[in-house]
Amino acid sequence: MKLTIKAKIQISKPAKQVFDAIIDPEKMSNYFIERGSGKMETGESVIWNFPEFPDDCPIKVKEIKPDNFISFSWDNGNVETLVSIKLDEVRGGTVVTVVEDGMENDEKGIQWLKGNTEGWANFLACLKGYLEYGINLRKGAFDFMKQ
């Protein structure tokens, strides 16, 4: 049985604004990545760079539905996992749901589950902080991880 991560938060902004903040690397650099090679578009590949990790992070964009859905795959220790981000407009904002799956239920998979669950919860909190309050919660938060 494959393991699945699910994280969810409500952001007090319209789905279009949340969507744009996720697909645009210039906006993402205010809360998640240091830089990205381009906007996420269906069928395209982009590179993300994180300030605390030395290696490039290749992203294969699977599907984009404007203001509603984003999916991509990326490498997690030689295993490609699939990330889906769903945006549901509700009264008072947008519920953002992140689901990632593809790892086996073994020791490596359990370590992935712990780390990436924490990572997606952090992503959502940082996205909320950026969109609602204009702050970058990630800045300096992971300096202790730099080699």
Score class of each variant (00 low, 15 high):
82 L>R: 05
106 D>E: 03
49 N>R: 11
65 K>V: 15
136 N>T: 08
82 L>Q: 14
118 E>D: 15
28 M>T: 13
129 G>D: 04
125 A>H: 15
118 E>L: 15
83 V>T: 15
63 E>F: 06
11 I>K: 00
129 G>W: 01
62 K>R: 05
109 G>T: 05
54 P>F: 01
48 W>V: 08
75 D>C: 05
136 N>R: 07
61 V>E: 01
84 S>C: 11
24 D>A: 01
105 N>A: 06
58 P>F: 07
16 K>V: 09
103 M>C: 11
123 F>Q: 02
49 N>F: 09
79 V>H: 03
116 N>A: 00
14 P>H: 07
121 A>T: 13
132 E>D: 13
124 L>E: 03
93 G>T: 00
20 D>Y: 04
22 I>D: 04
12 S>Q: 14
80 E>I: 02
87 L>R: 00
103 M>F: 09
34 E>D: 10
95 V>L: 13
98 V>G: 11
55 D>H: 04
33 I>Q: 05
110 I>E: 12
31 Y>S: 06
31 Y>C: 07
71 S>M: 02
48 W>E: 11
125 A>S: 14
25 P>N: 00
128 K>P: 02
41 E>M: 02
115 G>S: 12
86 K>C: 10
32 F>V: 01
56 D>M: 03
49 N>Y: 04
57 C>G: 13
39 K>N: 11
99 V>F: 04
33 I>Y: 06
121 A>D: 14
134 G>N: 13
94 T>K: 08
74 W>S: 11
135 I>C: 11
97 T>D: 02
123 F>C: 08
86 K>P: 00
57 C>V: 03
50 F>S: 13
39 K>F: 01
17 Q>R: 03
137 L>P: 05
89 E>R: 06
65 K>P: 09
43 G>Q: 00
123 F>K: 10
105 N>T: 02
22 I>W: 08
25 P>S: 06
35 R>W: 13
73 S>Q: 14
59 I>G: 00
19 F>G: 12
88 D>S: 14
101 D>S: 14
16 K>N: 15
25 P>E: 01
36 G>L: 07
56 D>I: 00
25 P>D: 11
10 Q>R: 06
34 E>R: 12
67 D>E: 15
47 I>N: 03
16 K>P: 10
42 T>Y: 01
80 E>V: 03
71 S>R: 03
57 C>Y: 02
58 P>I: 08
99 V>P: 09
51 P>Q: 12
116 N>P: 09
37 S>D: 01
100 E>H: 05
12 S>F: 04
48 W>T: 06
